[in-house]
């Protein structure tokens, strides 16, 4: 139980007070902060709407003249709300947060890299090493190498889109089938780590392209 800093009523922790609607300034998980059910499949528009509505209601500007307790609560709740919105808005960070809520870490029982990802990593990294070498030696084919990296960027982006789709599919499955949570967790970890490996690769390719193009 917590006490509302504005009206003093004791109640279960929420973002706002059940009787006076002022922010309570207490810590909540991201779903609770946004008054959302604990479900992974979230519609972007619904999330946007809830966030804007709640942030308007608890905004520090509205409590600028209020007693210190209410003012502090408004700032704490606004920070929590924004943090929660940012965590849930991006599907990858939402998935990682979901694991965290279950006491799971992405790397738990998840160290082996799937062969298709490993092959991709080594191919791309060799391509990058080659382009760095060409650049260093001022060889003429660096335009070709840049084109090769651009092509690779497209392939990686396509793979990334595939994993993003798989991630949304996994989110939907959580709501439909509560029986096989263990399998869903393993699948979620696999998709999220593939996305992480791909992100690193895409970052390295972008970096390689910048270097190649630099005069």
């Amino acid at each position: 139980m917590v006490e509302c800093p504005s009206c003093g009523r004791r109640q279960e922790p929420h973002l706002t007070c059940a009787s006076c609607a002022a922010p309570l300034g207490v810590e909540l998980d991201c779903f609770e902060a946004l008054s959302l059910p604990k479900r992974l499949a979230i519609e972007d528009e619904a999330l946007e709407r809830v966030y804007h509505d709640l942030s308007r209601r608890i905004h520090p500007d509205r409590y600028a003249q209020a007693p210190a307790g209410s003012r502090d609560a408004s700032m704490r709740s606004t920070a929590l709300l924004t943090r929660s919105y940012r965590t849930l808005r991006d599907p990858v960070s939402r998935g990682l947060y979901w694991l965290e809520l279950r006491g799971q870490k992405l790397s738990d029982d998840n160290k082996s890299v799937p062969p298709e990802i490993a092959d991709m990593v080594f191919e791309v990294q060799e391509q990058l090493a080659e382009s760095r070498e060409a650049k260093r030696e001022h060889r003429a084919e660096s335009a070709d190498l840049a084109a090769g990296l651009e092509d690779r960027r497209v392939v990686l982006q396509t793979a990334m889109n595939g994993y993003q789709t798989a991630l949304r599919g996994n989110f939907v499955m959580w709501d439909m089938d509560r029986q096989s949570q263990q399998e869903l967790i393993s699948e979620l970890k696999l998709i999220l780590s593939n996305i992480a490996y791909l992100r690193t690769l895409m970052r390295d390719v972008d970096h390689g392209l910048v270097e190649l193009k630099a005069a």
Binding site: V113, A118, K189, A196, L201
Partner: peptide
Amino acid sequence: VVGAPECGDVMK
């Protein structure tokens, strides 16, 4: 071949 999914490092 192992990896650290948190940071994307891959080790062979």
